[in-house]
Amino acid sequence: MHWKLHRDGPLEADVDPDLSVSIRPEGNRTVVAVSGEIDVYTAPKLREHLIDLVATGQYQLIVDLEAVDFLDSTGLGVLVGGLKRVRSHDGSLHLVCSQDRILKIFRITGLTKVFPIHATIDEALAAGTDS
């Protein structure tokens, strides 16, 4: 039964009081669900996950920021780094975020034009892998 539970749950879950990352496949894409705060202390952990995904050939990523309650420019840097890595393999990195307080930093830095940003996971999946 443990085996079945594991198969139905996220492929990988990294739970931390400050930042949790959980990764699961959705068709030919990979959803990276992040929760907590992404700052100078926690961002390296997200970066490691994104590097691992690319290293294992997963280039079509959806990063779900719905459960993130803080993101600063260090976090933006990690997302930009992730986008660079998947693009070098003709991949894509879409974001899911509907929270205005998180979207604000994307707006003031012009990154709303760089990342495809969706309000829901379903919308991101429906949008395909164009970037």
Partner: peptide
């Protein structure tokens, strides 16, 4: 790795 350019954080604050 993956850092934004030097001064970027302060530029965000000024924005």
């Amino acid at each position: 790795p993956d850092a934004m350019p030097p001064g970027f954080g302060l530029a965000v604050v000024s924005g």
